[in-house]
Amino acid sequence: MPKRAYTHDSSGMNKDEYRAHLHDLQIELVAMQRHLIAGNHRLLILLEGRDAAGKGGLIKRITEHLSPRETRVIALGKPNARDRGSWYFQRYVPHSPSAGECVIFNRSWYNRAGVEPVMGFCTREERDSFLDQVVPFERMQVEAGTTLLKYYLDISREEQAARLEARQSDPLKTWKTSPIDAVALQKYDAYTVARDHMLQCSDHEHGRWGIVRADNKHEARINVIRDILRSVPHPGPIREDQASDRDIVFRFRPNMLTNGSLAR
């Protein structure tokens, strides 16, 4: 349970502290991956969140020193005609991890519960059908031996506005812009409703949601990596001072929809 209600927060560790923590954690990620490979384990990480929530930056820090042969990042484009005529989950299944692999989805099948209904890309019936199927779909993967971690990166309205504006003015970030960005802030409240419904319907024993307070990118990255290392069994020496801050990364509970824990 988080200790405080959601607030916009730009404070935190300085850059030197951040780099030092990140270096140590990336060493431990490499050790974790060696264990995954040696034991033929499968790791699947889903990253969801609003536009500009920091998913891409987090993925970069997780994968920066991992083996590219056993690490895959999946960011699927919009479905083609064949995808639209298939079972919704069908185009995601081929990207599932094999033995020894770590797969990270930068947005996943949860598009059907977030972006698609808000933007009018699916019907309410299609969304409801997805939410009926997603729990057994994930349960089957976990029961087959896949370790599944799901994180929702939550940012405030003010922080999203600042990041979307930075994308427009920074020539190194313009590739991130999309037509959806143009209406992200206009539909902030609609995305909030979709997020709440998604979390409530798809948090389950085999696929718990981790909520990440992501207004501060550095603290979000450090604490998600710490949470991953704590959640994936491996023989590495995880120290108590490397535990994730439960005020930044915490497990979803239904009462969080009304107690101010999530950005609104």
Rank of each mutant, 00 (worst) to 15 (best):
V224Q: 03
A243H: 10
R226P: 07
I27W: 10
N216F: 01
L185Y: 06
A190L: 15
V183P: 01
N255I: 11
W87S: 12
V193T: 15
L131I: 11
H234V: 01
H8A: 08
R61Q: 14
Y92V: 03
E219H: 11
I59Y: 00
E138M: 04
A190M: 14
A144M: 11
R251C: 09
P136E: 13
G54H: 03
M1W: 04
R127C: 15
I74G: 10
M140K: 09
A52I: 02
D83F: 09
P179D: 12
S86M: 03
P171S: 04
I248G: 05
L257W: 12
T174E: 07
A75Q: 07
S96N: 13
R208C: 03
S11R: 13
H65Y: 12
I37D: 01
S202W: 09
K55D: 01
I155V: 14
D83E: 12
L44H: 04
P2L: 00
R124Y: 09
H95R: 08
R112C: 08
A182M: 10
W87P: 09
S156M: 05
K176E: 07
V30G: 06
D181I: 07
R82M: 07
T63F: 01
M256W: 08
H21Q: 14
D227G: 00
L172T: 10
S129H: 15
E116Y: 02
D196A: 02
H218L: 11
D51Q: 07
A38W: 02
V142D: 01
F105L: 12
I74Q: 05
E64H: 13
P97Y: 09
S178R: 10
E240H: 09
I62C: 10
L76A: 03
W209I: 02
A81N: 10
P79N: 08
A190K: 15
V30D: 06
Q33I: 10
V135D: 03
V30F: 12
R226D: 06
K78I: 13
M256V: 02
D196E: 05
A113V: 13
K173L: 13
R253Q: 14
V73R: 09
H23M: 04
H234T: 02
T7G: 01
R61L: 07
I180L: 15
I104K: 00
G260N: 07
V249N: 02
P171I: 05
H206K: 06
P136F: 13
T177L: 14
